[in-house]
Each structure stands twice: as structure tokens, then as C-alpha cells.
């Protein structure tokens, strides 16, 4: 059983955070809220998202899982106004998701959860360095790098967080000192990442007030931030690129 009412903005944020990684996802429902874990087809990017029941105006669910085509859902959510509330309900008889918004009712077919790629195990990583900065700064840094290259190096030097991008002929470097950041924990960190994936991730992360990055040397990056007004959390994990010799 599943029935929920939520502000359309919060739902859109939630879908966007996952749809930047995968097209189809399994929604795990519990009485306390919902979680999604997914890994992209190339096995290089992972998302783990939790929305607590208090993000919803109303939330009742029993344990279960729903297979959802995220593109389809986000397309339909485009019909909802900003301040509107959206009602979601599982029609158990037809196994369809009913979406209601100001007089409009959709019934969308669900996917068989068994047909969706298996949820990944979240690896336990202890990463030495951690940086907290505003989402907007993060977005700007990625945008700046995209102008010269398709990959970016992120690292920590003392108490400075640096980002470097090197294209065929052009370079970009951005230094962020301690006072420009919300917080920094120094550590040995220097890894290369694909901008393709990062720019997808900052689409969501860029809207958050605080984004925490965890970095290591030639290790994946963890990107954590809150959504849905603090009642939801997104954790991205992105594998590093292998540097050319």
C-alpha cells in the first residue's frame, strides 16, 4: 500500500537527483519514507537517496518496492505548477501509479522491479579529505571546467580546495581558500573525474545550500547534500577516471 501527498517541487527535485544517473529505478517504500539506490549502466556512478516521511504532507506506506520509469514520471511532473501539491497512490489492482494534481489524473504503468538492474552494494569508503561548500560554487566550478575539457582534477592542498581542468590546448584552475568554503578537512586528495557525470550531478547539487565532497587520492568522490527542505538526503559516488600516461 502506498499513498502520499507532496509539494511538486520536492518531488521534482527527488526525481531529478536520480534520473541524472539512471532512467529506471526501484523505489523502496517503508512506513518511514522512501529510499532509492541505483548505479548507472557503466557501473561508474552511484546514487543513494532517502526521503523521510516528514517531507510529505501525508505519507502512508507498507514495505514494498515500485519500479518506475523516471523519464516518464519527470515528463508528467512537468504538468504540475510550482506551488501545487501532487498526490501519488498505488492502484494495487491494476498495479499502476495514480498521480493526481489539481483536477488532472494520470495512471502510469509501473515496471517489474525484477527487470530493473540490481541495486548496488554501497561500498564502505573512508576518504581522507572533506570539503563543504555552497552548491552554487560547486556548480560554477564544474561549469568553468567544461569550457576547456571533459575531465577535471579535484584535490586538496593544505587548506585550499583546488580544481584543475586541462584540455588539448587550454587549462583552467580554480583555487578555493578556507574562507570561501563552509568547511574543509585536509587530507591527501587528488583525483581525476569525468565532467560528463559531474555536470549531471551538480544539476541537483547546485540547488543545495551546502554540498559536502569527500575525496581521496585516485579514489571515488562522494557528493552529499540535502533535498526536500532538509528531510531528504542524496549521496552520489563517482569512480575516478584513469589518468593517461
Amino acid at each position: 500500500m502506498f499513498k502520499a501527498i507532496i509539494e511538486s517541487e520536492k518531488l521534482k527535485e527527488t526525481i531529478e537527483a536520480v534520473s541524472s544517473i539512471v532512467d529506471e529505478a526501484k523505489l523502496n517504500l517503508t512506513p518511514d519514507g522512501l529510499t532509492i539506490r541505483a548505479v548507472d549502466p557503466a557501473n561508474v556512478a552511484m546514487v543513494s537517496l532517502t526521503i523521510k516521511s516528514n517531507a510529505f504532507e501525508e505519507f502512508t506506506a507498507t514495505d514494498g518496492e515500485l519500479g518506475v520509469d523516471l523519464n516518464r514520471l519527470s515528463d508528467i511532473m512537468g504538468m504540475a505548477e510550482k506551488a501545487e501539491t501532487v498526490e501519488l497512490e498505488l492502484d494495487e489492482e491494476s498495479h499502476k501509479l495514480v498521480i493526481r494534481m489539481s483536477g488532472l489524473t494520470y495512471k502510469i504503468a509501473l515496471l517489474d522491479p525484477a527487470s530493473i538492474r540490481k541495486e548496488p552494494k554501497i561500498p564502505q569508503l573512508e576518504l581522507p579529505a572533506s570539503i563543504t561548500l555552497s552548491g552554487n560554487d560547486m556548480k560554477r566550478a564544474v561549469k568553468a571546467a567544461e569550457k576547456v575539457s571533459d575531465h577535471i582534477t579535484m584535490g586538496v592542498d593544505g587548506e585550499t580546495f583546488y580544481l584543475e581542468a586541462e584540455g588539448d590546448s587550454d587549462r583552467m584552475r580554480l583555487d578555493m581558500l578556507k574562507d570561501q568554503l563552509i568547511g574543509i578537512k585536509s587530507g591527501d586528495a587528488h583525483s581525476l573525474f569525468s565532467l560528463d557525470y559531474l555536470s549531471d550531478m551538480v544539476k541537483s547539487a547546485g540547488k543545495a545550500n551546502e554540498v559536502t565532497l569527500e575525496l581521496g587520492k585516485d579514489f571515488p568522490v562522494k557528493i552529499n547534500f540535502q533535498i526536500a527542505g532538509g528531510s531528504g538526503e542524496v549521496n552520489y559516488l563517482l569512480a575516478p577516471r584513469i589518468e593517461s600516461d
Binding site: A42, S194, A239, R241
Partner: peptide, 20 residues
Amino acid sequence: QKVAGSASMMGTFDGTSGRR
């Protein structure tokens, strides 16, 4: 390009020494 390309250029969640 997106799937096989990314998978063959990037390390795993264990870092750049991880093999895929």
C-alpha cells in the same frame, strides 16, 4: 560511447586501481 566508453576509461568504486 557513454556506457562502454565511460566504463573503459574510469576506475571502479575501489579507486583507479580497481578493474572492470
